[in-house]
Simulated scan of single mutants.
Amino acid sequence: MVKAIQVGLGHWGFSWTKEVIPKVPSIHMVGYVDANPDAVKRVQTELGIDEKRCFLSLEEAAKGTEADLVIATLRTEAHYPVVKQALELGFNVLVEKPFASTISQAKELVALAEAHNRILMVSQNYRFQPAPIAAAELIGAQKFGPVNLVSIEFRRHAPSQGYRYWDMPDPLLADMSIHHFDLMRMVLNDNPKRVSCRTWNPAASPFGHHPIGVATVEFEKGTIVSYRGSWMSSGPVTPWAGEWTMDCSEGEIWWTSRDHFMGKAGPDRLMTRARDAQPEAVTLAPIEFADRTGTLAAVAKVIESGSIPARFSSGADNLHSLALVQATILSASRDGEWVEIAEVMA
Rank of each mutant, 00 (worst) to 15 (best):
D259G: 08
W166C: 01
S196T: 06
S160H: 02
H210G: 03
M186I: 14
M232A: 05
Y126S: 14
E304K: 13
V70M: 04
V40G: 00
Q161N: 09
M271E: 14
L89W: 00
S333E: 15
R118S: 04
P192I: 01
A4G: 03
D268G: 01
G48Q: 07
V195S: 05
R273D: 00
G208P: 08
S331P: 01
G162Q: 08
V95C: 10
F154D: 02
E88A: 00
D247H: 08
G8R: 07
G31N: 03
K264L: 14
D276V: 10
K84C: 03
R292K: 14
W240E: 04
F128Y: 15
L149G: 00
T295G: 15
L47D: 02
G8W: 05
P192C: 05
V195L: 06
A72Q: 13
T199C: 09
M176A: 11
L74H: 04
P239F: 08
V2D: 00
V214W: 10
Q85Y: 03
W244L: 01
E88S: 00
E340I: 06
F219A: 07
M29R: 15
K107I: 04
L322Y: 06
A298Q: 12
K23P: 01
E77P: 02
T102F: 09
E340S: 15
V282I: 14
K97G: 05
E114T: 11
A327E: 06
E340K: 15
G213P: 02
Q105A: 08
R156G: 02
W338S: 05
L47E: 03
Q44P: 00
Q161S: 12
M168E: 12
G31K: 04
V325M: 13
C248D: 02
S333V: 02
R275Y: 06
P81R: 07
V7W: 00
Q85N: 00
F219E: 02
G8I: 03
Y227L: 08
R311K: 12
I303G: 09
L94F: 03
Q6G: 01
L94M: 04
V110M: 11
L69P: 00
T238Y: 03
L324R: 05
L138T: 09
G13M: 10
T295V: 06
M232D: 08
G90C: 04
V150W: 11
S230A: 08
